[in-house]
Design a protein around this nucleic acid. Structure first.
Lengths: 321, 321
DNA sequence: GCATGCCCATGCAAAAACCGCATCGGTCGA
DNA sequence: TCGACCGATGCGGTTTTTGCATGGGCATGC
């Protein structure tokens, strides 16, 4: 198989030469534009014509004209070249983390306040990063992080495994949710003793391990023993029971966004002051470049926006799926 | 400026290599698919990554994986390659005359019957050729042929200039258009003597030179002198006058498609039998490849379809603007 | 009508790019 | 720990491309 090796496909270089020639209608000027001399340009175009089996330019020694086929091919060539540039651009943007998609797991509770503020920030600071949201409990999140189904998780118990990096993103005070008429609403601030021997809607040990452990720890340290009733893991269900007058509940500040009628909140003094912590966790070896840019959103300066958000009317918060 | 000459743009070859590698996720197999060995393929991909400034494939000695940027670029690369193939195909089709656009000039009269049949044929025999229609009088057509505004013209006086090629496409008999009640309608066939000293709506010498010359020639040869009234160039206007009882008119057969109420037609014996000729004309050096395929429609076998058309009800004829 | 200028094609030698072979280095599984 | 596998790299030979010089066609001007 000798001779002019039979190439059945053209190259972008040939397209660029052709477009230059077709636009200049002059091989010399086109060659100059391509930073080369005229003979090679001539040959690139001959090659292109040979590959296509079609004459694209009608060239006499006096003038260069496009053939009808050439006119059509010029449009196609321009489109292809435009596409190559946008492809390179888009790819570089993805690689730089300026654009891309990250998949985020979050617990229902974190969706009440931190997540909306995070998405608000993303909209202004990293508009080209798409965030795919997946609500799941913490254990599911850990599993999904391992398999790569999510890039980052918002979860409650910090995970100490070495292959993960974690970052505390919020600390919240504990709030008491009380039904209208509860005498404790007379106080501006409560402490744990207010719950001694009082009915308290408690977290389930399995479904809401973090809150269960935290509350039992706090009560033990304060030598307080509430009357635990029910055992739930969904905060909105707990508030519904509060409203029904079953008892009080202790919930993170963010739960106030749920604003049930006839349920009011009072801060509770604890040690530490803000015992409810939320963590972000991701695989240290995650290679999604958008993750880097997204993580910047989680860092300190974030909290300016967080506070700004707190002053917004609820309706301004777009609560995603 | 030495070293690996700084290419700021990638080549299609690199895209093809990348797509192969991304699909196989194995450099050896990808190279086999590309009909080459593994080292050059490795280098093409390195080159591509260097040009983009982006790592597209994560390769350990054990496995090859796409990076997020690589996933995006794979989609783009596939799109570009698809586009190159369709571009080549489309261009070859244009060049072969299988597809394309031809611009056609036609006189109002030729639009009554020949043009619809021609378009009907095109629809079945050359469906990928678009026909742009422009109604214009013969002199305009000649000018437009010269300047290239139209590729081909349907006109009446054959043009004898050497830069044009012409082809007679139809011969028609002359028909007399008579108002209801005209005694000549009693005859099945008329001859020129029936018009001696009778009122006849005549063609204008300037606007319809061809018909004017033809009729005056015919009458002179037959030593017949009609009473010429009015001088029009639009056939439909003439028929309107016939209907009003002003006089008779002599029109090409095709004018019957206009079917005015209360106007009937009778063939007229002439020498030659079919004196009304229609010609197609085009520049001999027209390089529109679609013209070749289009001209095939005008050739002899066409007339099968022409006859088939004659038997169709009028409503079947799409009369284009 | 001949000289001249312009322009694209072509011959040719030098330069660059590319390919295949052999081999290296790293990783996984036995 | 050895061997198999896989992608990267060094290197020599071949193909391709480039630039220079030049050929040849065509229109313009004197």
């Amino acid at each position: 198989m000798k001779g002019p090796s039979f190439w059945s496909q053209f190259e972008l270089r040939q397209l660029r030469c052709f477009v230059a020639a077709a636009e200049e209608l002059h091989f010399g000027r086109a060659a100059a534009r391509m930073n080369m001399t005229q003979p090679p340009l001539s040959r690139q175009i001959q090659l292109l014509e040979h590959v296509l089996g079609v004459k694209l330019l009608d060239r006499t020694s006096r003038a260069v004209k496009l053939t009808p086929a050439g006119r059509v091919f010029l449009l196609e060539a321009r489109r292809i070249l435009r596409l190559t540039e946008s492809a390179a651009l888009a790819t570089r943007r993805i690689a730089s983390g300026e654009a891309g998609t990250i998949t985020l797991g979050f617990t229902a509770a974190s969706g009440y306040s931190f997540l909306p503020s995070l998405l608000l920030q993303r909209a202004s600071h990293a508009p080209n990063i798409d965030v795919a949201l997946k609500e799941m409990v913490s254990t599911e999140q850990v599993e999904s992080l391992v398999t790569g189904r999510i890039d980052i998780g918002l979860l409650r118990p910090p995970i100490a495994r070495p292959e993960f990096t974690t970052l505390k993103v919020t600390e919240e005070r504990l709030m008491a949710a009380l039904p209208v008429g509860d005498p404790r609403l007379a106080e501006a601030t409560l402490n744990l003793k207010h719950f001694d021997r009082q009915p308290l809607i408690m977290y389930a040990a399995d479904g809401a391990r973090y809150f269960y452990d935290m509350l039992t720890g706090l009560f033990e340290a304060a030598s307080v023993t509430p009357i635990a009733i029910q055992s739930l893991s969904q905060i909105h269900s707990m508030l519904a029971l509060v409203r029904a007058g079953i008892g009080a509940a202790l919930v993170p500040e963010a739960a106030q966004s749920l604003h049930f009628d006839d349920v009011h909140f009072r801060p509770v003094e604890t040690e530490p002051v803000s015992p409810v912590e939320l963590f972000a966790a991701w695989r240290s070896d995650n290679d999604n470049p958008a993750l880097g840019a997204f993580l910047d959103l989680l860092r300190p300066q974030s909290f300016e926006d967080l506070e700004a958000l707190a002053e917004l009317p609820d309706t301004a918060i777009q609560f995603p799926h």
